[in-house]
């Protein structure tokens, strides 16, 4: 079951949305994999399909309008896309948990922390509410919440943003999942709290052997905590490798552009490096490679044929007809 120590393999995921304006081709061909206890960063601009990927994995994608057309999501060797809704209930929260961007609205405002946590724990572990409450307190202690039994009685609006995100993490980890999908968990928090939450996620990986998918649009976060990174552009994974490979030796022009857009701290710069153009409309995406209208290394083939994600060097995947670094195809 645990071949190659891979906990999750996403293969050729194709997800469209049927909207009034037309078919939104949200994910075209998304493949990546995640090893046990690894932290994978999924990075991309807004609308690149990061969250759609996350919701497809957990089958929380609203269908309709969403349509999962092709692909597999192999979790511990089993295809989640073939599971029934009832089988998914035993996976969500128990084996795969999620945390979200906005801790302000991700917790239910009219129930106490205790109610929200014990409901989930007693449902999955089939234990009494009282036992669940003890377990919830331990989970809150784990995420370093001071005075957990007091916090249990509080409503979300009585907690600070950082505390709420800690509660959210405690809720997600309360049933000891194998995989945590974090959808921009620190975007809404100020930087000191951000650092604390990231440190907490790293610590949970050490303590619980947790695997993490970290969805973000911030390369800083990726460099701080991730082991590998998948770069998404307009519904495709354009580059996927270890963090070292991607930062030191980016192969895709888009990745290079993103890295160049980070202003250097040691020099004064007049203006930021930006990638020209805007993210394409996914109802009528560009032909061939979806990045070609903005690409400085465009070849004729780029307009005609979408590039496949291939392993160019050892463990370094890229979807590009004319990759950087002299890599030949």
């Amino acid at each position: 079951m645990k071949k190659n120590g891979k906990i999750l393999e996403v293969q050729n995921l194709k997800v469209y949305f049927d909207t009034e304006e037309g078919i939104v081709k949200a994910l075209e061909d998304v493949s990546f994999s995640l090893k046990r206890s690894e932290i994978l960063g999924v990075i991309g601009e807004t609308g690149s399909g990061k969250s759609v990927t996350a919701y497809t994995i957990t089958r929380l994608l609203p269908q309709p309008p969403g349509m999962i057309l092709e692909g597999k999501v192999l979790f511990e060797g089993e295809d989640l896309l073939k599971k029934s809704e009832n089988e998914m209930l035993d996976i969500r929260g128990e084996k795969i948990s999620m945390i979200f961007q906005e801790p302000m609205t991700a917790l239910n405002p009219v129930f106490t922390v205790e109610e929200q946590m014990t409901d989930v724990i007693s449902y999955h572990e089939k234990i009494s509410k009282k036992q669940a409450a003890e377990k919830a307190i331990r989970a809150l202690e784990l995420v370093k919440i001071p005075d957990p039994s007091l916090v249990m009685k509080k409503y979300p609006h009585e907690l600070s943003g950082g505390m709420r995100q800690r509660v959210m993490i405690a809720l997600a980890l309360s049933c000891e999942p194998e995989l945590l999908i974090a959808d921009e968990p620190t975007t809404a928090l100020d930087v000191t709290i951000q650092a604390q939450i990231l440190a907490l996620i790293l610590e949970m990986r050490e303590k619980l052997g947790l695997s993490v998918i970290m969805i973000t649009h911030n390369f800083g976060i990726v460099s701080e905590i991730c082991d590998s990174v998948a770069v998404m552009y307009a519904g495709n994974i354009v580059e996927f490798s270890s963090i070292y490979n991607v930062f030191e030796n980016p192969l895709h022009p888009y990745t290079e552009g993103l890295l160049k857009a980070i202003p250097p701290l040691d020099k004064d710069v007049e203006s930021l490096n930006v990638i020209p153009g805007v993210v394409p409309n996914l109802i009528h995406p560009p032909s061939g490679c979806r990045f070609h209208p903005r690409c400085s290394r465009k070849l004729d083939i780029c307009e005609k044929k979408p590039p496949k994600l291939v392993e160019l060097t050892d463990g370094h995947f890229v979807a590009c007809h004319n990759p950087l670094g002299g890599g030949k195809r």
Binding site: L60, R92, E94, S97, A106, N108, V120
Partner: peptide
Amino acid sequence: DYIRTALSTGLPKGKVIVKYALK
């Protein structure tokens, strides 16, 4: 968002609707 959270914790949809959404 909190309905999405409740669903992501694996609670059955019926319970999420009648308890977490309705209140």
